[in-house]
Design a protein around this nucleic acid. Structure first.
Lengths: 204, 204
DNA sequence: CGCTGAACTTGACAGTGTAAAGATCAGATC
DNA sequence: GATCTGATCTTTACACTGTCAAGTTCAGCG
């Protein structure tokens, strides 16, 4: 009866995750505006109103996609510095490199997860996903906190620097974007600012 | 005949600029998604298809609004550091302060002007508007370029830092946004990284 | 067997961008 | 002055979107 895989059942089985994957694919293929409830539904083989039973409207789907996006984002940062044990500075720059690489490989997804939706409106699972990714950055920044200084300061400095560079690079502010990640603009020159974290100014 | 000001003429007179102003107002009131060709037209008192004669679709209107946005953005940066002659560092931090202030006062407009529309697709006037605003940042960075170093390096470092901070702050990544610009998050702590531009590390 | 509730479909509606075709009018030309 | 011309704006229409309301299907259970 239902053994025939060609015969789609009334219940999809795992529609929620199928819609999220469809959404990521649409973002990847057509950019931010290509993410549509109806197109996601069509790609998952269900009717246009089916997603409403799994997400709270389009924003709900965006949130679920963002959660998955943060998971991939974290993996990209970790993958860029899993060498043997390099110096603390190399490790931090590796994290930043993974930060940028994720945006280059997933422009629309990167834009989505850092879109201006106020954090207050995020559900708990998504908040946890962002915190989990932030942990990677925090760990890499830990060795650079001056004694007696709030470690958040260095974290915020590094985060601002790499995030700003990535966002401006993706907006073609440093020249055309290279999807092959060969030319990443003045990435190394900008990241050289991090060198000054380890060599504090002389007390004079 | 046509002396009666209550009697609206067939020709608007300055519809193009009226639509841009209407668009900025809509962005300010309702955020990024509130910018709509039809709503702009209605606010300007014309039919919904009238904007098509002045802009190349919604993206064309966005570009025109961005051009005006860059003009205001530049003024905001200049306004934040027009004191008497402070130090180079104070002046640079003032520019950064104006950068952030503009985003706080015009969240949707800030998002629009730095949206990921590739620079390649921008028209010449808009490109010139962005270059004009960038000039302010470049001038403020000039005193910090190490001798023999490409001044673009410092410019890109500073730009990345302030842009990343602003973008993350506006996404409520450093806590809730204060529209009154009283609490700007760890702004001063992050900008302290710029101190290291003037005090290079010792040579060993 | 029949019930119940979740999963999904169908149909409808308002709002959107955009294109085509017509109406209006200021200004130049004759 | 009369007429032509082209820019400006309106009207109409269409496809697509998110969202709601109501109906349909079906697995699991008493």
């Amino acid at each position: 009866m239902t053994d025939n895989p060609n015969q789609k059942p009334h219940h999809h089985g795992d529609l929620r995750s199928a819609l999220i994957q469809a959404g990521i694919a649409l973002l990847s293929e057509g950019g931010k505006d290509a993410l549509t409830l109806r197109k996601c539904a069509a790609r998952a083989g269900v009717s246009h109103a089916a997603p409403a039973h799994h997400f709270d409207g389009l924003d709900g789907l965006r949130g679920a996609i963002a959660q998955e996006g943060f998971r991939l984002f974290r993996l990209s940062m970790l993958a860029a510095c899993d060498d043997s044990n390099p110096s603390d500075l190399d490790r931090l720059k590796g994290i930043c490199s993974g930060y940028l690489n994720f945006a280059i490989k997933n422009p629309a997804l990167f834009e989505l997860i850092f879109s201006s939706a106020p954090m207050a409106g995020l559900n708990r699972d998504l908040k946890q996903g962002t915190a989990f990714a932030y942990e990677v950055l925090r760990d890499a920044c830990a060795p650079f906190a001056a004694p007696g200084q709030d470690p958040q300061v260095v974290e915020t400095q590094v985060w601002s620097l790499i995030h700003g560079y990535t966002h401006l690079y993706m907006a073609s502010r440093f020249g055309p974007v290279d999807p092959l990640q060969q030319a990443r603009g003045p990435f190394d020159a900008v990241m050289a600012l991090l060198d000054k974290l380890v060599a504090p100014p002389p007390k004079a």
